[in-house]
């Protein structure tokens, strides 16, 4: 069959068949993801103007890159970006390390022990966000929650609703929900690796720690890169957690506290959807740049 047609033609047929695996996905992807993005990109190039008392219909004008230039000079937007960038730089490594340690522990345990722990470790990830919020509002509450009095016993005066601790409170809320997710992705990668590879190292007398660090971690680098990039994106686009704390400490969490909060405010409170679209694109570019830098540092191009 194919082999008789010569290796090159055979390769080409195989590649074409391989490409066909991606067709169903890309048809839907273009329709449901690319089309809306193109439409939104278009919005960012226009601006709307009122007249009179502002109650009549608006005129739509082509604005070129005006919205982008305005966005680049928007000090409050960039202040939010800096705030979130700093938070990401501290929280993401922490969350990643914890998730990986958890995955490695689970992988190192016997099958029976792992089966016992898998479910409890994934509970926070399965708890829906609105319920997690209810739980942590209670636990954090300086008035009725248990954490403040508990820490007071240790001589620590902590108000999780205050402006000083807001990033700790947000970080823990995020970590509690995210660790299980990251852990599962990494763990599944570990579990797909044929066991023989680890066994031979153990036979050579390597300690479990050494196997984990020198063999397992390099094996899961790809999924680690993925979860880290997702964390970078998710953290730079953080929205619902700071929105919650807007009520707790509104003097700290202003309407443009994070980039996405500013975008929502521009779109739905200030009523400037065009500008909000431009800010969204700027944010996407920044997030893209941050992810690219990270790839570069880990020396692993995404398309390789």
């Amino acid at each position: 069959m194919a082999i008789t047609a010569g290796p090159r033609a055979w390769r080409r047929t195989a590649a074409l068949q391989g490409a066909s695996f991606t067709v169903p996905f890309f048809l839907g992807f273009v329709l449901f993801s690319v089309v809306p993005v193109v439409l939104a990109l278009r919005e960012s190039l226009f601006t709307q103007r009122s007249s009179g008392l502002g109650f009549g219909p608006k005129t739509i004008e082509f604005a070129g890159l005006d919205n982008f230039l305005r966005g680049l000079a928007d000090a409050k937007f960039w202040a939010g970006m800096g705030r979130v960038g700093l938070f990401a730089a501290i929280s993401i490594p922490l969350i990643q390390v914890v998730s990986v340690v958890m995955a490695l522990l689970l992988d190192a345990a016997s099958r029976r022990v792992a089966a016992r722990f898998r479910l409890p470790l994934l509970i926070p990830y399965m708890i829906p966000g609105i319920v997690a919020t209810l739980i942590w509002i209670y636990l954090y509450s300086p008035d009725v929650g248990p954490l403040t009095p508990f820490l007071a016993l240790l001589g620590i005066d902590a108000d999780f609703y205050s402006g000083e601790l807001i990033w700790v409170s947000i970080g823990n809320l995020m970590a509690w929900g995210a660790i299980g997710f990251n852990m599962l992705i990494v763990y599944a990668d570990l579990q797909s690796v044929p066991r023989e590879i680890f066994e031979s190292a153990r036979v050579d007398g390597a300690s479990e720690l050494r196997v984990a660090w020198s063999i397992k971690v390099p094996m899961i680098r790809r999924s680690l890169v993925l979860t880290t990039v997702l964390s970078i994106i998710g953290t730079l686009q953080i929205f619902s957690d700071p929105m919650l704390f807007r009520s707790m400490t509104p003097e700290t969490v202003t309407r443009d506290f994070t980039p996405i909060m500013a975008i929502y405010d521009w779109a739905f409170a200030q009523g400037d959807f065009n500008y909000a679209a431009a800010l969204s694109i700027i944010l996407a570019l920044v997030v893209g740049a941050a992810s690219a830098v990270f790839y570069r540092l880990t020396n692993k191009a995404p398309t390789s």
């Binding site: 509002i137 509450s141 300086p142 008035d143 009725v144 919650l244 009520s247 707790m248």
Partner: peptide, 12 residues
């Protein structure tokens, strides 16, 4: 007192 922390608000 914030309205978000309902248990604290009500008990307060």
């Amino acid at each position: 007192q914030t309205y978000q922390d309902r248990p604290a608000l009500i008990s307060y």
